[in-house]
């Protein structure tokens, strides 16, 4: 029972991170109908740049809270800028191209970012300096750190903010209008190019924050960490119903729980044939199952069979 609660806690933390990344996929997919393969890599850029900034700030002699704030700000700005740049340079010229072209471009962007990062930050696993002391609380037999609580709270605040932005602000109205029909939105006086750029900015900023959470949680960052994370976050977006913002949040949380519990119990259930080294397989099984059983996702609208 203790293990169950512990895995539940881990799953919620993991799920909040997945949800933040999944939001970026789902927002871009909602508006452009494009799987932005580079999105996972923005998480990696966020983590690695925040780590580099943090090291610099600490070396200069700033205190930990100030360093952390500066590193976060720097990483979010860098990733946001990078996201807008990618949209402007790689995706916008292909708006009217056949469907295959932006998909191939997206994988090209992803590879370029990954190996660009490998060049800048090397291919080593880079460890977070041991500056963050976390307190551990015992709760119902499970150990919970303050860092875990902070991640879940931060992610919840960010997601609530995003929902408010989309539901209650003029920008949110413009975003939803562009998602429904970009041409008509343009006729209504909405600068759709600007709305799309802002969507990329927000998504990339959230990716950077998720990257920082991963960095703080696991204590390491790596140039290839965005690949699997991106794949799982995309699965979360599909599970919740791609294009749906609340769906991405729900999907992320569920996927985090499935993976955590799955990895925790697969050894017992299969009598040791499969161990936790298969944890990355769960997301994939979920993806296939969702596509077979409910392609629209949990909160998705009309079942989508689009040519």
């Amino acid at each position: 029972m203790d293990i169950f609660i512990q895995q539940l806690v881990n799953g919620v933390v993991l799920g909040s991170i997945y949800a933040l990344v999944a939001l970026g996929y789902t927002m871009v997919y909602g508006i452009l109908g494009l799987i932005n393969f580079a999105h996972g890599d923005l998480v990696m850029v966020g983590a690695l740049s925040a780590l580099a900034l943090l090291k610099v700030c600490l070396a200069v002699g700033l205190g930990l809270p100030a360093s952390l704030a500066l590193a976060t700000l720097g990483a979010v700005l860098l990733c946001g800028g990078l996201g807008v740049l990618i949209e402007r340079v790689a995706y916008r010229p292909l708006r009217s191209a056949p469907k295959l072209a932006p998909l191939i471009t997206a994988i090209g962007v992803s590879i370029l970012i990954e190996y660009g990062a490998a060049m800048i930050w090397s291919k080593q696993y880079l460890a977070l300096p041991p500056v963050i002391q976390s307190t551990t609380w015992q709760l119902a037999g499970a150990a919970i750190t303050d860092l875990q609580v902070a991640i879940v709270v931060m992610a919840s605040v960010l997601m609530a903010g995003l929902l408010w932005l989309i539901r209650a602000t003029p920008l949110g109205v413009a975003m939803r209008a562009t998602e429904q029909n970009a041409e008509v939105a343009g006729l209504m006086g909405i600068d759709t190019h600007r709305v799309i750029a802002i969507t990329f900015l927000i998504g990339s900023g959230l990716a950077a924050l998720a990257g920082i959470m991963v960095l703080l949680y696991y204590g390491v960052a790596h140039y290839f960490m965005g690949f699997m994370l991106g794949l799982k976050a995309f699965t979360a977006a599909v599970l919740g119903g791609i294009g749906s913002v609340p769906g991405a949040m729900l999907g992320g949380l569920l996927l985090g729980l499935i993976e955590s519990l799955g990895a925790g119990y697969v050894g017992e259930l299969t009598g040791g044939v499969f161990g936790s080294n298969y944890r990355d397989v769960f997301a994939f099984i979920v993806l296939i199952l969702v596509l077979v059983l409910r392609p629209a996702g949990l909160l998705g609208t009309a079942s989508g069979e689009r040519a």
Partner: peptide, 21 residues
């Protein structure tokens, strides 16, 4: 039977999964 882009992501995942196995 679904949108073409799902194939891209599923194959991307499958490529990694087979390596894990």
């Amino acid at each position: 039977k679904l949108r073409g882009d799902y194939l891209a992501i599923v194959t991307l995942g499958f490529g990694e999964i087979i390596r894990i196995f």
